[in-house]
Amino acid sequence: MLRTDSETYEPLLRQVELGDVWGVGRRLVERLALMDVHSAWDLAQADPKQIRQRFSVTLERTCLELKGIPCIEMNDPGEARQRIMTSRSFGKMTDSREEVHQAIRQFAQRSAEKLRGQDSLARAVYVFLKTNRHRPDLPQYSPSAVVELPCPTDDSRDILLAASQAFAAIYRPRYRFMKAGVMLVDLVDANRAQLSLLDTPESQAQRERSDRLMATLDALNHRMGRGTVTFGRASPKAAWQLRCANRTPRWTTRWDELPQLR
C-alpha cells in the first residue's frame, strides 16, 4: 500500500494517466481535462466537494482514496456472510402456483448449498415474491414472510420445508409474479452453534446422518455438475427459468450444442 507521506507517492501519481484510474472513463477524462486535471496526482489535489458537485459521489470517493482517505470498504473473500440470498427475475411473468413454488424450492436449495460452503447454520428462512411494478395495468402484490427453524441447521430438507411454509403463507392467486427469492438469516458458525438442553443421543445421531447426507449431496454436485442431485426436479421450460436468448453456444460442455457441419 502506498503511503501519502512516502517519497514515491507524488512521482508515482504523476506518472499515472487519468484514464488508468479505476472508475474514470473516457468521457470523464475529457470533462476533467477542462478543469486542468490530467493525471492521478491532479485528481488527488482537486477539491472533493467540487468533484462531487460537478460529477458524482463515486468520483469524489476516488479523489479521497487518492488522498489516502479510505472510502471504499475492502471485503475479505474468506469472511463468512451474515445473510445468504438467492433470487432471480423470471424469464416472463407467471401466475402459476406450481411454477413459483418450483422457483422457491430451487432458490432454497441453492442457498443451503452456499450456507454449507461457508460452514454456517441458519436460524430462519426469509421468502419474498414480487410482481412487475413497471406494469401499472396489472394488480401489484409484493409479500414476504420469515419462518424460524426449530434449531440452527444447514440441512436442505429443513430449509426447503421452511421455505415452502413461508411461500404457502404469502402466495395469492390471480397475481402475475416477476421475481422471487429466498434468504437465510440469523446465521451462526457451525462450529460454535449452541446445542439444546433437550438434545438426546438420537438427536446427535440424526445430526450426524444429516451431515453425511449433505456432504454426499455436495460432493456429487461438485463432481458431476450443479443440479445433478436435487430434491425435486424443476421443469426446464418453466416461466421462472431465464430465457438466455443471446447466450453463446456451450460447445465445450453441452453435447446438444456442438456445432454441426452440413
Rank of each mutant, 00 (worst) to 15 (best):
L213F: 08
A205K: 15
A215S: 10
T216F: 06
A215N: 05
R207V: 05
D199S: 15
Q204A: 11
S203E: 09
E208K: 06
N191K: 13
T200K: 13
A193Y: 07
R192H: 11
S203I: 08
S203Y: 12
R212L: 10
R212W: 03
M214A: 00
D199L: 04
T216L: 11
S196F: 06
R209P: 00
R207G: 01
A219F: 03
R207L: 07
R192P: 02
M214Q: 03
T200V: 10
T200Y: 12
E202C: 07
T216R: 04
R192Y: 09
L198D: 10
R192I: 06
A205N: 11
S210F: 05
Q204M: 12
R212G: 02
A215C: 01
L195H: 14
L197N: 09
A219Q: 08
A190S: 13
R207N: 08
T216I: 04
R192A: 14
L217D: 01
E202F: 10
N191R: 14
T200H: 10
Q206Y: 06
L197E: 07
L213Y: 04
R212D: 04
S203T: 13
R192V: 05
Q206L: 15
L213W: 02
L213H: 03
Q194K: 15
L213D: 06
L195C: 14
A219C: 08
L198S: 10
R207S: 00
E202H: 14
N191Q: 13
Q204S: 11
R209W: 04
L198T: 10
Q204K: 12
R212F: 03
